[in-house]
Design a protein around this nucleic acid. Structure first.
Lengths: 132, 132
DNA sequence: CAAGTAGTTTAGAACGATTTTAAAGTAAAA
DNA sequence: TTTTACTTTAAAATCGTTCTAAACTACTTG
């Protein structure tokens, strides 16, 4: 399925700008990036785009499930092209994130979900620190 | 141990402002809060403090391990007075966090920590959604 | 295809959280 | 004490992100 179809499938019009971003992000490679990172990639690809459009597009892509946003206490939003349930190592010093595939983690005991709620995804974060 | 000693123990001068904040935060009750929440509590307690001092103090307290900062993709930093390893439920709609004690979760299989790094804490986040 | 309409892009302004500045104040050391 | 290093402050600055409103474009319907 090409990117135009992918966009239509989730109900997004395949505009020029969304296609440029889809061509960069939806290539099957897993990566973590910020809006600014993406803008640099857009520029490097010989295109250009308003930062407002980039934020707009990232929000739509995220809400439509084409990308994910990572839970992170950094001041800049971090997005992830890996939309499968998975986990992360985080080097708090540098902010570097490394993917952990879902089958590398095994949760044996999970707490009872609070009354009236449903489980909507489990994320494990393993903070790591450079050895000295 | 009183709060003055607690501050000295981690190498912080027990100034008037830090004592006011310590008296609010270090009472043994677990809570999640923002800088603004704390400012409101300070005001309610009949004191007042520059917002710069509040941010300053929260950063020092966090760096000294008196409080933790929660990994969260919200635009406002969230702090936690529970400094023991523990986990959270997160209602993504409202941003509400609920503590999960460490012994309520059992990780059976953990991935190998990357070469040259040490495990520096594991956090499990269970995203939950209101049932409809 | 033409015309309409609903959604999209844009530059620039605005916003909100946080940090910086630099000057005045305070705690601890000598 | 007096000195020195650290802390607080209000206000300005900064940074990431969102809003605004006007121009533009994709899709729909006739």
């Amino acid at each position: 399925m090409d990117n135009k179809e992918k966009l239509r499938k989730v109900g997004l019009r395949p505009t020029k700008q969304r296609m440029i971003i889809a061509d960069i992000l939806l290539d099957g490679i897993n990566r973590h990036f910020t809006a600014e990172n993406l803008q640099n990639e857009i520029n490097s690809s010989g295109n250009s785009m308003s930062i407002a459009t980039i934020y707009n597009c990232l929000k739509k892509f995220r809400n439509c499930g084409l990308i994910k946003q990572v839970e992170s206490s950094k001041d800049t939003a971090i997005f992830d092209t890996n939309i499968n349930q998975h986990h992360h190592f985080l080097d708090e010093e540098t902010g570097e994130l490394i993917d952990i595939e879902n089958d590398e983690v095994n949760l044996h005991k999970l707490p009872k979900i609070p009354q009236g709620y449903l489980n909507n995804g489990v994320e494990v974060l393993i903070k790591i620190k450079k050895q000295i």
